[in-house]
Simulated assay, not measured.
Amino acid sequence: MRVVSILFLIHEKPEDPRSNLQLFTEAAIKANIQVAWGIIDSLELSGRAVLVRGSILTNSASLASYEASSNLSLSDFETIWVLSLGHRSTFLDKIQLLHLVPQSKLINNCNALLHLNSKYALASLPESIDQPSRVASSDPASIKHTLDRPGTWIFKPPAESHGRSVYKIQSGDPNSNAIIEHEMPSAGHSFRLLESWLPNIEHGEKRVLMADDSIVGCYERQGKLDHRTNLAAGATPSLALLSADEQILCHAVAKYSMNGGARFIGIDLVYPYVVEINVVNPGGLGTLLALGEPISGTTVLNALGLISP
């Protein structure tokens, strides 16, 4: 159903003209949808109303001069799209405030933001969907005990992005203890994940963008500097096609995610394994554009039924 107004909740004004926010905003304005940006860290409760500091954007030219100069009520908008969670220290407060809003308004609702936006969430995927072996703990001894098993592992934080603090370690590696002690200086204070290394990732990891049950686009990321396939860590992207089996897998993940309240996601895939589901502002649209794919913000908004009648 076509919408008449949409509020994007953001951390700050984007600098990249190919950011999701910029592309979605321009597409919505072009479709005569009323658009506003609100700073998610300014969410507040006034009586029964949830408010945010922001501003309504009247045309594409107003994006450059945006200032969060007004109090906007979330109840005034038909659709709300969370494109940033803001500061981590107030995450739970913001989720609780957003939970006061009818969840049908949110592209990715509070259940998705709280539960699916996590590397732990893969453990609840149907057993028919393969994933790497995984151990999570805040106890360094538990992580070290797992490393007694033969094999190669990825050691990483459960809630970071852009490839930060992601290590490839092996059983018996003399550096393992030093890495674990550096990342987990004391028990109970920080969680870390051990994930089985997928050798096929050396041939590339695919990022698939899904809007509801529609495959929006796909590209492959090839690690160049080290084991990481994150673009921010130096990996290089290239356009890729999905096999019939990969498409079936992506539709199964999309169905699972939609049931959990997420309508726009990015799937990281090393077939037959699902490595991660990205729920908050998954990157890829700008990369596909840069690679020459005939795609736009309108493509996503159409797939979500925000423009099409």
Rank of each mutant, 00 (worst) to 15 (best):
A159E: 12
A159P: 00
S161G: 04
S161D: 06
G163Y: 09
R164M: 10
R164W: 08
V166C: 10
V166L: 11
Y167L: 08
K168E: 13
I169P: 00
G172A: 12
G172R: 07
G172H: 07
P174N: 09
N175W: 10
N175E: 14
S176A: 10
A178Y: 05
A178E: 06
A178P: 00
I179Q: 03
I179P: 04
I180S: 03
E181K: 11
P185V: 14
S186C: 08
A187F: 05
A187R: 13
H189Q: 15
S190K: 11
S190T: 15
F191L: 14
L194A: 03
L194I: 06
E195C: 06
W197Q: 12
H203R: 13
H203E: 12
H203C: 10
G204K: 03
E205P: 00
E205H: 03
E205F: 00
K206L: 13
V208G: 00
V208L: 02
L209F: 00
M210C: 11
A211S: 06
D212V: 12
D213Q: 09
D213L: 13
D213R: 12
S214C: 15
S214P: 05
S214K: 14
I215P: 00
I215E: 05
C218G: 00
C218Q: 01
Y219T: 01
G223P: 05
G223Y: 02
K224G: 05
L225G: 00
L225N: 04
H227N: 10
R228N: 13
L231M: 07
A232P: 01
A232Q: 06
A235M: 10
T236L: 15
P237C: 08
P237T: 06
L239W: 02
L239Y: 03
L241I: 10
L241S: 14
L242N: 02
L242D: 02
S243L: 04
D245Q: 11
D245L: 09
E246N: 01
E246W: 04
I248N: 10
C250S: 05
A254N: 08
A254K: 09
A254C: 11
K255L: 07
Y256M: 15
S257M: 12
M258A: 14
N259Y: 09
F264Q: 01
I265Q: 02
G266E: 00
I267M: 02
D268I: 03
D268K: 03
V270Y: 01
Y271E: 09
Y271V: 04
Y271Q: 04
Y271L: 08
P272S: 11
